[in-house]
Nucleic acid binder design. Structure first.
Lengths: 240, 240
DNA sequence: GCAAAAGTGTTCTTCGTACACCCATGC
DNA sequence: GCATGGGTGTACGAAGAACACTTTTGC
């Protein structure tokens, strides 16, 4: 095998190579026909950005996989678990974090805000689902990170149906359309949207309907996970 | 401003948060109708992976932007400068690098191998342009990194014309087609390929022709950078 | 009965795709 | 004259885009 241990240790002793890695999570939810992001107010008085709004984040531990760190941080700050996450990219400007060299890898997470209860971690004074259309000022480069995540999501949504993660298990076609409209930031033609989706065979129409709405009740639908996985293997495209 | 310095320093003292960041470069070139990657044989006896083939990489310095580190590393290992580079993603498995915790961010670089001379850095025993179809075994997780870069390139090539970077300034339509075929790993119909490209108006047909070929000489073309930049702003799509 | 959203087909245009032959050159 | 790649057009089918009215329900 490779003779490495001493060399590697000497590398870590060189002060100018040492840095701290963190992960930041762009947690995206869909509620009341709006895309939202979970932000929190930093609550550690001795850390940079105290009392400012930020994306949930935390440091990567020495023996922890990067992806695992993202999952852990999400859980520690929000209490959420079993969430779909994907790496966005890494932000590494030398001066991005005040007072120390911290390189951060951004992840986005997709979740239905009503499916799990928010349990604030100790580092947070407050946390809120904030509409993507009305963001407060964020600390450090978190506005850039958020923007990059949204851009990635826009691309992603054209390649596979991500509604699975953001909607309740039973939903109306209209709310699915609103979701796509929010992500793509356009209006879609209802007839064309339905035509395309139904042709794909991904949706199962239930006999159940909406209750108590002051207009004609819509039928509920659910996703067919079997068909989805099958399509995914074949590497399909999903243009809207 | 934010009261941060002491806090940040205390963060970096915690041993379990300290790690080393590196960058690795997937340097892609196109030569003799083939896509190639620049690999080097590791030449530092006291570093892991000595005498094995690897992607050019190096550590990020304390006061260096991550993107700048990628540019520097590329230059140090190969002597290349002014090269198109883009971040792929970050690889952070805890055990990916033997003997130390090293998280690495991968970049891909596109270059015409004939446009700049390869000048080996001191860490390399040897370096070669290797066909993407005949790769040797690579150290650490470099095979995964390379694969991720190629996948990203495949997606990229459908969204903007990257031939700019990989071809000489004057080229034939056939070599452009071969480039796309190499990246996408398919065969394309010549007539349809030309139809689509010419309709875009990105190419300028020169009066100059190939010299000394044992068949009908092809006209040379060049890219119209003005039209390219214009199209790019409008966020165009480029399907083949 | 009215406000509010659900649901449904057709036409036109655009674009992708398949396909075969003559042309110029070097040897 | 032959081998090699250069260069060109058309016809068909699929898919995207535009577009308006009837239905159901709660109040």
């Amino acid at each position: 095998m490779i003779e490495s241990t001493t060399a590697a240790k000497s590398i870590q002793k060189e002060r100018d190579l040492i840095s701290t890695m963190s992960v930041d999570c762009v947690i995206i939810g869909f509620e009341q026909d709006e895309l939202k992001v979970l932000l929190y107010e930093r609550g550690m008085e001795d850390e940079p950005g105290f009392s400012h709004w930020a994306l949930p984040g935390g440091f990567v531990k020495m023996n922890e996989d990067l992806d695992a760190a993202a999952v852990r941080v999400l859980n520690q700050v929000t209490g959420f678990h079993d969430v779909y996450m994907e790496q966005v990219r890494t932000f590494g400007k030398a001066d991005r974090y005040p007072g120390a060299r911290v390189i951060t890898t951004a992840y986005y997470a997709l979740i239905n805000p009503r499916s799990q209860k928010l349990k604030l971690g100790k580092d947070a004074r407050d946390a809120r689902w904030v509409s993507i259309k009305a963001l407060p000022r964020l600390v450090f480069d978190h506005a850039d990170i958020l923007q990059a995540a949204m851009k990635k999501l826009k691309r992603k949504v054209r390649q596979e149906p991500i509604g699975f993660e953001l909607l309740p298990s039973k939903f109306t076609l209209t709310s699915l359309q609103r979701l796509y409209e929010s992500i793509l930031d356009t209006e879609l033609d209802t007839r064309n949207f339905r035509k395309k989706l139904l042709k794909m065979g991904l949706l199962i129409k239930l006999s159940e309907q909406q209750q108590g709405v002051p207009h004609r009740a819509a039928f509920l639908h659910k996703f067919d996970r079997g068909v989805y996985l099958q399509l995914k293997e074949g590497g399909f495209v999903f243009d809207l």
